[in-house]
Amino acid sequence: MVADTVCVIFGIYALAAGLGMVIEPGRATRVLDEFDTSPALAYVTGAFMFFLGAAVLALVDDFATVTRGITTVLAAGMIIESLLMLAWPKPIFALARWMVPEDDHVRGFGLVTMAFGLVIAVLGIV
């Protein structure tokens, strides 16, 4: 039940985030710029992500079903990313900038993110 709900919530988030990248691709660069210029923003985001990922992982930490496996991987990924954001955020932002060098790439990642979100949400509903 928890894993299904997490998949639906994460799927809806990915759909909205992907749609934002498709509609306004320049915003991705501005968001990365804000993280670069505000260590406090990166730290607070990392701390929030850590506790949220850890809470989800405390509730779902196995691969008994597809949604439980997806939730486990998502939560573990959140924990790893959040710890990097707390300790050493520059490589994460450098990777993000490398992945989206221009608006067409951002739109492409947006479409992929939307597709991923749709699949995750549907798996959580079914």
Score class of each variant (00 low, 15 high):
L15T: 01
F48A: 14
T71S: 04
F35R: 02
E102M: 08
A115N: 07
V2C: 06
D104I: 07
F63M: 13
A75L: 02
L118K: 02
V60I: 08
L59P: 09
T65R: 06
L123W: 09
F109Y: 15
D33H: 12
F35S: 00
M114N: 02
A54I: 07
A94H: 00
L95M: 14
F48V: 15
D104N: 12
I80T: 07
A28H: 10
I79N: 06
E102R: 15
T45P: 00
F50H: 02
L84A: 15
V112Q: 09
T113V: 07
A96V: 03
G26L: 00
L86N: 07
A94F: 05
G18R: 04
I9S: 08
T113L: 14
T29R: 14
L83E: 03
I92E: 05
I12Y: 03
G77F: 05
L86H: 04
A121E: 01
A121D: 07
L111N: 04
F35I: 03
G124W: 01
R30E: 11
A76V: 10
V112K: 08
T67C: 12
V126G: 14
M21A: 15
W88G: 03
A94K: 00
I79Y: 00
L111S: 11
I125S: 11
P101H: 05
F109K: 04
F48G: 08
F51V: 15
P25G: 06
M85W: 11
R27Q: 12
G77L: 09
K90Y: 09
F48N: 04
A55E: 06
L41I: 06
L84V: 14
M85T: 02
V112D: 01
G26I: 00
A14P: 02
G77Y: 04
D36L: 10
G108H: 04
A115K: 02
Y43N: 12
R107M: 05
S82K: 02
E81K: 15
A121F: 07
I125F: 15
D104P: 04
F35T: 07
A3M: 03
I79A: 02
I9F: 12
L118Q: 08
L95Q: 07
M21L: 12
G11N: 03
A14N: 08
D103S: 15
T67H: 07
W98E: 10
T113C: 10
E24Y: 14
A14F: 10
A115T: 11
I79Q: 03
V100N: 11
A58M: 11
T113A: 10
A58N: 06
M99C: 13
L52E: 13
V8Q: 09
L57C: 01
T65M: 09
V73E: 06
A40W: 15
T72L: 04
A64D: 15
A87T: 14
M21C: 12
L95T: 11
T113E: 14
A42V: 06
V126A: 12
M99D: 09
D61H: 15
M114F: 07
L15V: 12
G69K: 03
Y13R: 00
M114W: 04
G53S: 11
D62R: 10
G26W: 00
D36C: 13
I120P: 07
F35V: 06
A87C: 13
D103Q: 13
A96P: 08
V56N: 00
I70Q: 04
R107W: 03
C7S: 09
V6I: 15
L41F: 12
V106L: 05
T71N: 09
P89Q: 01
P89E: 03
D4W: 05
R107H: 06
V126R: 10
A54M: 09
L41A: 10
